[in-house]
Nucleic acid binder design. Structure first.
Lengths: 250, 250
DNA sequence: ATGCATTTGTTCGTATGTATC
DNA sequence: AGATACATACGAACAAATGCA
């Protein structure tokens, strides 16, 4: 008794098979960024399916950011280098449909930016310090130009710190969450009356953080970074969410 | 001079238009999870495009985890509740194609789990504490059963902490990165000779962390959680990456 | 710079297996 | 059990776009 144990079979669509094969070829490095896939008509030969099926598979891979195809291109679909675009997309929908609050987003930024500073203070090279210096200098110059330029310099600073942390996940997540937050409150900041005072204050904060990073004092840099972000965003966060944010301050 | 300023036009595919419309309907709440889309034949009428175009759009939405369709279902495609599946997918490909090192992944877990404990110590309810207690108890019971059961209880503990942090992003990212790490080293742990000693040690560590959380000592809970994770995984991380991990210890 | 061949984008028609009533 | 409507998959065709000689 107890014959062979069978496994439940899920009917797997034809296009999924194609997706899997091409995806694996990309992830294993057999298909490198910049390389081209055969044309759709040739693929339908290789997989022995119809053209529609091939196209559905290509659409999925395109949606995942692995491929790009243009009409009329005789070279076939292009294999793309990885970009956090799909990560960005899925986090954005998470933020929308799950009604992620601004408080949660800012809190996450405090965690990421704090950690990035903690690590950057330990691991930074002179070149990376120079990038941060340049970013702060650009912020000073941008006060007279406009908020958009200032914001770009601000982003450059945080990017430099994230890179110096040597952790790609921190880098990418930081980037994604930041752009979501900025999108949410862009209009509110633009309306502010005393943008110039805000910018000057922000510069002073960044200088403080940078000094701690330069001195190699990780914990202090992290603490300052979190505090700075709290001060900068707390005004836009509803009262009842602020207590949770303060949980990350000391 | 200075005629009207035109904007560059990008040819937008028909199926993209459909994706945008349906996506927006879902994100704006006009289409709620559990609801059904019209059948493909009806959609081709509403959008006045061909069947294939509709199908390509549906495939993309399916790949993004917003829809599910089954053959023969008279109700049409189903709108799914958001799941971090696509987030998981894109992080996994990031890990693969960008050759994310185990060190980076563990480091990120140290950041997330540390922060989760820091917040949980402040915000936990009695019910959440009970969940954590139950998880540790399950770990004790699982030592005699096997590593798989033990690992499941371990995951349950970290999940409970993440939930108690009240931050969905920490929760989701924690979940995603953890499963990637576990996949990477599952075989190595299974091969270990002294799994039982490892499990007992792990339980002791969890008890310590839980005590700090119960006492409401956030910084201590965070420090212990990071230390615990470092100790647990450092053996699998190559020498040259360990220094960066130590940057998160005090 | 101009055609030309090829490729993708899109449409239409058809056949087949499947889920629900 | 049968009828109906559905998704899956195939194939042929035309238009628009691209790269190359």
């Amino acid at each position: 008794m107890g014959g062979p144990r069978f496994e439940p079979v899920r009917t797997v669509r034809a296009y999924e098979r194609i997706v899997e094969q091409i995806e694996q070829a990309v992830e294993s490095g057999k298909l490198r960024p910049g390389e081209r896939l055969p044309s759709e008509r040739e693929l339908m030969g290789q997989f022995s399916v119809s053209r529609s099926t091939v196209r559905e598979a290509l659409r999925v891979l395109q949606a995942r950011g692995l491929l790009r195809s243009r009409p009329g291109d005789p070279n076939g679909a292009e294999v793309l280098p990885f970009s956090p675009a799909t990560l960005h997309k899925s986090m954005t929908t998470l933020a929308r449909v799950d009604e992620l609050s601004l408080g949660e987003l800012v809190q996450f930024r405090m965690v990421l930016d704090g950690s990035a500073n903690l690590l950057a203070a330990r691991l930074h090279t002179p070149e990376e310090l120079a990038e941060m210096d340049a970013a702060v200098e650009a912020m000073r110059a941008a006060v007279q130009v406009g908020y958009d330029t200032f914001s770009a310099a601000d982003v450059a600073f945080h990017d430099a710190v994230a890179r110096a942390s040597r952790n790609k996940l921190i880098q990418v997540c930081n980037d994604v969450v930041r752009s979501i937050v900025l999108n949410l409150i862009a209009d509110k900041i633009a309306d502010s009356d005393d943008r110039e005072a805000l910018m000057l204050e922000s510069i002073r904060h960044h200088e403080e953080v940078l000094e701690a990073v330069r001195a190699g004092d990780g914990p202090r840099a992290a603490r300052l970074a979190r505090r700075k972000m709290y001060d900068y965003y707390v005004g836009y966060v509803p009262e009842e969410e602020r207590e949770a944010l303060r949980g990350l301050l000391e």
